[in-house]
Design a protein around this nucleic acid. Structure first.
Lengths: 246, 246
DNA sequence: GAAATAGTGTCTTTAAGACAGTATGTG
DNA sequence: CACATACTGTCTTAAAGACACTATTTC
């Protein structure tokens, strides 16, 4: 139940510090994946007020003894059943009124997961909806979320803005870091990697240049194996040489 | 008094929500300027515990009715006498224990100011100390702060990490946005702009390529005027065509 | 005129884009 | 065989780096 108040705790008084009216602090995680040429975000249906019944990012109030990163990892694990995925702090949203019931500061994170892990999330009650980015490049702004019939869906809170910021960040990062690997299985072909880049960037990239850039970057190594079960010449499989995970 | 608890307020009870133990939320602003080839940060001496007497970034607890950006602007104005400067949210620091007295989540901002405004800050009780960046490129990590005698100074809280993140962010941003203008007066020469870039990046840049890149970017316009009071051929003065300020 | 920095023109180098052509799988 | 996609080689183009040279100020 993200953004919800919890029942009052006994309230261990902090030494020398009186308790005053303070905002709640939450983490919200924008989990993205790329499947079939479309960008998808992980969303959960809210079961409590406010925005009860609407879709929202996975989120929750932080605990007093856990770090922000730990809170984001906990939310990922408990709300989406996800572990060992790429995770990075994104931006902090704090507009008064973004939560209609109380002041909540939301530290947003972005996570990237391989589309093969999507089923595990469905089991946890989450769904993956299509993200349509109504701006080009790194302009920024909220995104549109579409259901399976292509209709626009209204998200809770300012979560469409959070997802917009997430796409903007990932697009920017793609230019100078090998972040696209995070959306693929351990072994992948150059074509799959290019598809991921094009899905995130929202534009086609030059194939020749892309291949050259990837192969000379030093971030890839050939596995010697080839894909199979394709009805054309199979491509070489590569692996990321510095696979990092939190 | 950043990070300090305030006296208890009557505690207007929020509708339907019980007050629980919550972290404090503060903003800390890393104000940077470039002068004489060195990067400098604005620091204030703490007058209250914790870290009483040590140097820290300008900061303060947010108010329940103000946005994060507004809190950062208020801190800039009240602690440093600065207005109308470039300001951007940086990162949120929330490690438990970063404030020894209570849990505080600090939303860090980075601000860039023209070195000509530095005197106004001194009047407000702040000082500008040299920032030495012990890493190259966008590796990241804490920076060293040096006093006027070149000795390392210990900052309060995790503020050396915040400044490190600020330098990393600005270095990255310099590659694709004309952010260097924010550190100069309204009119400036190409040499001054190049000095600013080199100071931020920590490396020399190619003069010819830099001039070409700036002149073809469309971000600059010649004023028709030239610098004076220099003992060599005076350079043309330029102005930023899209000067933006918050 | 000497010294210093501003500014210009051009050659080289490097990376991206374009494209023709070959290679290797399936049906 | 046709066909689809993988991969290679080379030409063109655009930007960065290098460098020689000219211009304009103060002393």
């Amino acid at each position: 139940m993200p953004h919800d108040a919890q029942v009052p705790t006994p309230g261990r008084r902090q030494r020398g510090v009186s308790r005053i009216e303070r905002p709640g602090v939450a983490v919200d995680v924008a989990v993205l994946t790329a499947k079939g040429g479309t960008l998808r975000a992980l969303l959960v249906t809210r079961t409590t007020k406010p925005y009860k019944g609407q879709l929202a990012l996975a989120g929750g109030l932080i605990r007093l003894d856990e770090s922000l990163d730990a809170a984001a990892l906990r939310v990922l694990s408990t709300k989406a059943g996800l572990q060992h995925v790429y995770l990075e702090q994104l931006y902090t949203f704090g507009r008064p009124g973004r939560d209609p019931r109380m002041r909540v500061i939301a530290v947003a994170y972005v996570a990237l997961v391989h589309s093969g892990l999507a089923e595990a999330c469905r089991a946890a009650g989450a769904c993956w909806l299509r993200v349509r980015v109504p701006w080009q490049g790194e302009v920024g702004g909220p995104v549109d979320i579409l259901d399976d019939d292509g209709r626009k869906v209204q998200l809770a809170f300012d979560h469409a803005d959070v997802l917009g910021m997430a796409v903007k960040r990932i697009r920017g990062k793609l230019n100078y870091t090998p972040i696209g690997f995070q959306l693929l299985a351990e072994q992948f072909t150059l074509r799959e990697l290019q598809d991921v880049h094009e899905t995130i960037l929202g534009v086609d990239v030059n194939k020749d240049s892309f291949r050259r850039r990837m192969l000379t970057s030093g971030d890839l190594e050939a596995t010697g194996e080839r894909e199979n079960d394709v009805d054309h010449r199979p491509a070489e499989l590569y692996r990321f040489t510095r696979r990092s995970a939190i």
